[in-house]
Design a protein around this nucleic acid. Structure first.
Lengths: 351, 351
DNA sequence: CCTTTCAAGCGAACCGGTTCGACGATCCGG
DNA sequence: CCGGATCGTCGAACCGGTTCGCTTGAAAGG
């Protein structure tokens, strides 16, 4: 069932059918209706490959999501869902690319073989070959995340530095003096994964400003690792009374570890961090956290990409989001740190 | 950068380049190397649209995941991830289709416009227009899930009936006599969503066989709904001592509700169900549950689809999985049901 | 009545690959 | 030395759309 068949049955030429469909030239009402009738009758739809070949656009965008770890986190799902939906409203399909390793096979497929008109990159690293590579090629892409040199890029990002710092200040304001940081897995931190690096940086800086005693940890993306990490924290420094985490997958394990160590949240121990709102509300007590607006970020990324596709020479734009901390139930004033090994004095209970 | 350019620079014809690349006819070592050098130098990759047009295959499969609710569950992410990875090993890309509503726009795009060679359908309903429609068209697709008439279909499914029944028997064996069922949201149940229907059926039948007192509930896919649902359960029948759930997103809320009602898990109340293993391990105490092998299901679905694409007239195949219940920490012997309103006798503590 | 204008439609070329039939060169056996 | 098989390569057609330039017929204008 191709356009030639339609043309034959409607008694017109192929080009007339094409123009009737696209509206790029005038077609008399009479023939338009005749064509439309045939199309409806046969249920014809123009072949996407042929169309893509002819006009050089595939109406597809690539969503490059990476081999971040051995599995995916809930946040990624929110991104994927919102990107797909936003793309659909613009009549674009979304092609998933399982990996983002530079010069990787599947990456080559997307770009080299021109399967997509543009791409959205997830899981950005501070020094990201993929971003640099695409920028050098002038290939339309939008990053969900921000590299170390975001000046001339298109991206929508989260200010992880500010967010982690806000968490620290929140804890400091509650009187906590000894806190820990539970980061994403070590490999991610080492490879310069943006949120891990910037989060750590914001945490460290804000803690220094407030004169807090800190320890920082990396933690696998699963509950068991979270629990182990928490045990390590209490072992290394029993006086710890609070922690900040970026690791939503470990959250359940962290809570379990606290329960088993008899640290009641938030009476004995405060927990906060940067996670997707849905996760924050899943744990008990619900997590006071900077909620990652994944849905909004995905939508905005698509919007930026659409803009860029429409006007290839537009000047780079970006959105840096700083969601507020949602006060829930997992943080409270510092009480007796540890097992009363330290007096209950919170020297600088500011603000 | 197209095949003609390569041909020109290598001093051969376009067809020779094509044959050198595909190997479908012999090309002398000499010219092959000459061509390869040019290709490497220019970084040429054949255009996917043109190739798809020429040989009628897109090397893309569609993953139809539906507007199940207002958001996606963790399980879906696991499916998506495993499907994408499995497809990649077969040199296939995955196109995401946000919806599965029959005769829906995005569905039409995938099939009508021939963007994909085959499809994997998620979130199957017992009477599923999509499946029927595709079957009528003879379009290669594999369902993750099983309709009411799975005889001549390609699918990989979970025996939700057996799984829910196993949960019930597990609880009955522990002496529980009054249990509840927490299903997915009501709209899903009403529209004939497979797991909701079959799970409910298995629960009901097994409970009847064991002579248990039951109540069944639908529950929104989020923690707040889970908590509300649990409160309702205890309000309706305080003697309830256990529940079975299919709703992993509500799990956190259920636990919270239990904690607030002072029902200790598993001492006072047992919880079990059918959820992804990762979620089961996130809550405390960890959930005794039939772990949904999402990763395996996605992989098998892709394998079936590949088989079907290779041999269009192959006879339908399927996999019905019945994962065992993983004993963790959320179930235990029935103690004093409710607040000791009922004596602690478990009349039929069968094997 | 003759020219100009314009709407409507047609044919051909093109997008970038794949594939089929043909053709010249080389090699072999008789 | 000739005839047929084999190898390597080429040209052309094709996949199913889009788009440009041209033709035609009718209406409008002088």
């Amino acid at each position: 069932m191709n356009i030639g068949e339609i043309a034959k049955r409607a008694g017109v030429s192929r080009s007339t059918v094409s123009y009737a469909l696209s509206g790029k030239r005038t077609v008399s009402d009479n023939t338009r209706q005749k064509i439309q009738r045939v199309i409806d009758e046969l249920g014809y739809r123009p072949n996407a490959s042929a169309r893509a070949l002819a006009n050089g656009r595939t109406s597809t965008i690539g969503l490059v999501f990476p081999p971040a770890g051995d599995h995916y986190t809930g946040m990624q799902l929110d991104f994927i869902g919102s990107v797909v939906e936003a793309a659909a409203t613009h009549d674009y399909d979304v092609l998933l690319s399982p990996s983002g390793v530079d010069s990787d096979r599947s990456f080559q497929r997307l770009l080299g073989e021109r399967r997509v008109d543009g791409a959205i990159l997830m899981e950005i690293r501070l020094e990201d070959d993929r971003v640099d590579h695409l920028a050098a090629l002038g290939f339309p892409c939008v990053a969900i995340g921000r590299t170390a040199h975001p000046e001339n890029g298109w991206w929508v990002g989260l200010d992880h530095t500010a967010l982690a710092a806000a968490c620290v200040r929140h804890l400091a304001d509650l009187g906590h003096r000894t806190i820990a940081f539970v980061n994403r897995p070590e490999t991610l931190l080492r490879t310069g994964y943006e949120s891990a690096r910037r989060g750590l940086e914001g945490f460290t800086k804000a803690a220094a400003e407030r004169g807090l005693t800190v320890r920082t940890y990396c933690c696998g993306d699963d509950a068991a690792s979270g629990q182990a990490c928490l045990e390590q924290i209490l072992h290394d420094e029993p006086a710890t009374t609070a922690l900040v985490t970026l690791n939503e997958a470990a959250l359940g394990g962290i809570y379990r570890g606290l329960a088993q160590a008899d640290r009641h949240v938030p009476r004995d121990f405060s927990v906060t961090g940067v996670v997707a709102g849905r996760w924050a509300e899943t744990v008990t007590p619900q997590l006071t956290a900077a909620d990652v607006p994944a849905e909004e970020m995905g939508r905005r990324a698509v919007e930026l990409l659409m803009e860029r596709l429409d006007r290839p020479d537009a000047t780079p734009r970006h959105h840096l989001l700083v969601p507020p901390i949602s006060l829930r139930a997992s943080t409270g004033p510092a009480g007796l740190p540890g097992k009363a090994e330290v007096p209950a004095s919170a020297p600088f209970p500011q603000s």
